[in-house]
Structures are given as C-alpha cells and as structure tokens.
C-alpha cells in the first residue's frame, strides 16, 4: 500500500507533468526571434549572401553582365 506522502508526491508529479506537457503542446507564443534567425538563414541561401559578403561582388558581376 502507498503511504499518504507517496500519494501526495505522485499526485503533484502527475499535475506538474500535465501542466508542463500543456505548455509544450499549446506553445502559446510565436517564437519571433527563432523565426527571424530561420528567415535570415533561408534568405542567405536564396540570395546567396553567405560566401564572403556577396553584396559588392554580386553588384560587380551584374555590372560586368551589362
């Protein structure tokens, strides 16, 4: 048989576990900072900005193409 204390602990643990799981699944807030980071990584890829600050280099190749 479980003691009163053990029941109390088990009850608390269950309540906390449910509350925590609730936090995770509901995830109330949109993670704005994470989204910005993700956007920047994708923009780097799409605009090819990663290899050595392509800004001026890209402008140069555009000029050469003209």
């Amino acid at each position: 048989m479980m003691s009163m204390n053990a029941r109390l602990v088990l009850g608390t643990a269950t309540a906390l576990a449910i509350a925590t799981a609730g936090c995770v699944t509901i995830n109330i807030y949109f993670p704005a900072a994470a989204a910005e980071k993700a956007a920047d990584r994708i923009i780097d890829e799409v605009w090819q900005l990663r290899e050595g600050q392509a800004g001026p280099a890209e402008a140069k190749t555009e000029e050469e193409a003209k």
Partner: peptide, 19 residues
C-alpha cells in the same frame, strides 16, 4: 519530480531556440 520538471522546461526552452 523537480528534476523531471526542470528537464521538461529546458527541453521546451531549447525547442524555442530554433525553428
């Protein structure tokens, strides 16, 4: 119990760090 809660919360925080 507290260790479990702390682990769950840190996993939550980590999940918030990156999309």
């Amino acid at each position: 119990v507290f260790v479990m809660v702390a682990l769950a919360l840190s996993a939550f925080a980590f999940a918030q760090g990156n999309l």
